[in-house]
Amino acid sequence: MTSLRIKGFEVRTDRLYDLVHHMWVKDVGDGRVRIGMDSLGVETSGTLAHLSAVAVGTVVSRGEPFGSLEAEKYVGPLVAPLSGTIVAVNDEVFSDPRKVESDPYESGWMIEMETADLAAERGGMIEGNDAIARRFAEKVTEYRLEGVLAE
């Protein structure tokens, strides 16, 4: 596992990223991937009050919600970064969403999915040290220019 600090935000390079929805995807073997929220997603969400997820066994397509979050009375979707079947939900995180804020890349994982063809799904995501560092930095810059993040 390699951890980088990009313009004040931690990013792990041992996984894939969907930077549109700020989700990370980590291959945990046997066709399963673990999914969570990246540090920019945590920052732009505000203090998480509630999380919910669809039931284990649900088939979700890439771009569709697999659950929802609530912060500051704002409810928004948790968007699946790839297609597959949900095989596990991190109950601890859904009981106490603060764990996502305190440890988004490890104990703050949200769900595990089985995906039929991870190789095919990788194309829509960002991976590799250089690409992750560059695209994450671009996103931070974009958010700062838009006023989404403080300087």
């Binding site: 732009t44 969400s45 505000g46 912060a71 704002y74 958010y143 989404v148 993040l149």
Partner: peptide, 9 residues
């Protein structure tokens, strides 16, 4: 709407 939820509200 702004991307940050608090800002959107």
């Amino acid at each position: 709407a702004p991307a940050r939820r608090g800002d959107a509200i």
